[in-house]
Design a binder for these strands. Structure first.
Length: 500
RNA sequence: CGGGGCGUGGCGCAGUCUGGCUAGCGCGCUUGGUUUGGGACCAAGAGGUCGAGAGUUCGAAUCUCUCCGCCCCGACCA
């Protein structure tokens, strides 16, 4: 029996550990198509949790859902120069619309399209073109639409959930009458993402604008939330873009203002993707597999009946059903506790470990001995796999919301402590180089808070370290300082890190 | 796309250098039994065109060539 359920451990081989967790937790698997994944039911259930919570937050901030086409006319993509530049290298292109059986029995594409279609890598262009038709007057504004969709970016180096050729996401696209409103929207959605990440994913994030080099192609400003994974690397977990009038000009999104003059709209876009599943895995999971924050766990509690004889089984199952009913009638985070009995006829130990590896926050084991004592054995995923506590059956409904809340908070605190311990204020280029080291050892480095100018020289300086400027954190007052590369004075420090 | 590693039953691997008995091992799976607050034990079994194709050879998992895929590093990348 190995000491840990996942092998190798994080310390031994972090990238391989990540893949093993994905497999052990049954989240996803490789597909026949390069760079594409099959998201398995357990992985998809986590995505559904994310969708549900985020969708509610979008609705609460005045947005509505719609759906735009998968295929984008090639000419649309050409409309915004920087946008083309940014995405041209990773587009799947549809050139034919028909297959014919060839003489050797193989299918041959025929029916060449007059204009090739691009499978959307993102939808600014086709949505912008649509908005141009929707919007005529200031009375039509703002337009606040979100879509849940898949997108395709032909990535050279895919990694399950973190970077796949096709992935699922949501993309919000809004149009406004003024720059101020659009900026406000951009920041509002950034806050929505930050709140979601910290409250629901228990994942502390740093939010702020990106340097010019890291901007979304076509954006005036890109803001992101950046999280630290357990190997010290940064993961961009969500982005919100102020697009200025770039797309409005390119696509003629205009409105008649109150004075009657025609003006270009100010637009925004913002998105998070199934990459968040990877983020959750790498933020919380341990050497025994997945660890899920309760708020996004498809299942909060699994009840495990333990019995030897048929008689015991009947009694135990009945007790389990009562507990299930009582817990289902109890709420945690404004939703009924999600609980299931696992009565499968497999060995108890195996069963326990399956749930450990899948990250179920709480296990409730009920056997004859527990029943005799009127209690259950409660185990938590944030504690050791063998630890358990006896809780009176009658008290379970009262206790569980508190336990789940404790787990949720505990995971956040643990992740924050980890990040803070790996974050440092640095005052010189030499310190930055020492902090990240030159080696490739996993776990080297973390977040370095350093004053740097938004300048190509800065990127060039840290390029050999594989370190990039992730964002310029917004929290707190200005702390002016001198750029450690250019010597220019800048208002606030940036976060530098190696990134996924 | 460049450098490196790898592809053998569901998972993890040995065997490949130095071609040759019916291709093995651990875990998992099936059945029976013994157990049982626990990732058990015993026994019997099922499961593999050794990534694909071509070639060399009496004989290829093993040698040669081509291709495909995966992982790591780089390039690249909201």
């Amino acid at each position: 029996m190995p000491a840990t359920a996942i092998s190798p451990t994080r310390a031994e081989d972090y990238p391989e550990w990540y893949q093993q967790v994905v497999r052990a937790a049954d989240l996803a698997e490789q597909s026949a198509v390069r760079g594409c994944m099959v998201i398995k039911p357990h992985g998809y259930a986590i995505w559904e949790r994310m969708q549900k919570i985020l969708d509610g937050m979008f609705k609460a901030t005045g947005h509505v859902n719609a759906y735009f086409p998968l295929f984008i006319p090639l000419s649309y993509l050409e409309q915004e120069a920087k946008h083309v530049e940014g995405f041209a290298k990773e587009c799947a292109v549809v050139t034919h619309h028909r297959l014919e059986l060839g003489p050797d029995g193989r299918l041959i594409p025929t029916g060449k399209l007059e204009e090739p279609l691009v499978v959307r890598p993102t939808s600014e262009t086709i949505i912008g073109a649509t908005y141009a038709k929707w919007i005529q007057s200031w009375r039509d504004l703002p337009v606040l639409v979100n879509q849940w969709a898949n997108v395709v970016r032909w990535e050279m180096r895919p990694r399950v959930f973190l970077r796949t050729a096709e992935f699922l996401w949501q993309e919000g696209h809004t149009a406004h009458a003024t720059a101020e409103e659009a900026v406000e929207e951009t920041l509002r959605m950034l806050d929505v993402y930050a709140t979601f990440a910290e409250r629901d994913l228990a994942m502390p994030v740093v939010k702020g604008p990106k340097p010019a080099a890291e901007r979304f192609p076509g954006a005036v400003d890109t803001y992101s939330i950046e999280a630290m994974m357990q190997d010290g690397k940064a993961l961009q977990a969500g982005t919100s873009h102020f697009l200025g009038q770039n797309f409005a000009r390119a696509q003629n999104i205009k409105f008649a203002g109150t004075s009657g003059a025609e003006e270009f709209c100010w637009t925004t876009s913002w998105g998070v993707s199934t990459r968040l599943i990877g983020a959750v895995i790498m933020t919380h999971s341990d050497d025994d597999g997945l660890v899920l924050p309760p708020r996004i766990a498809p299942q909060h509690v699994v009840i495990l009946p333990i019995s030897r004889t048929d008689e015991e089984r009947t009694a135990v199952l009945e007790a389990c059903r009562k507990v299930e009913a009582a817990l289902t009638a109890t709420t945690y985070a404004d939703e009924p506790i999600r609980v299931k009995i696992d009565a499968r006829d497999i060995r108890g130990g195996d069963k326990v470990w399956q749930h450990v590896k899948q990250g179920v926050p709480v296990r409730v084991e009920i056997g004859p001995r527990d029943l005799a004592a009127g209690a259950a054995s409660v185990s938590r995923r944030d504690r050791g796999p063998k630890e358990r506590e006896a809780v009176a059956l009658a008290e379970l409904p009262a206790r569980l919301p508190g336990i789940l809340d404790e787990i949720q908070r505990g995971l956040f605190e643990r992740a924050r402590s980890f990040r803070d311990a790996r974050s440092q204020r640095l005052g010189s280029r030499a310190e930055v180089e020492a902090f990240f080291g030159t080696g490739d050892s996993a776990g080297a480095g973390g977040f370095a808070r350093v004053h740097v100018a938004d300048d190509p020289a800065v990127a060039a300086a840290f390029d050999p370290l594989k370190v990039t400027v992730r964002c310029i954190p917004m929290e707190g007052p200005d702390e002016p300082g001198t750029c450690v590369v250019t010597g220019r004075s800048v208002p606030r420090p940036s976060v530098l890190a190696r990134a996924y």
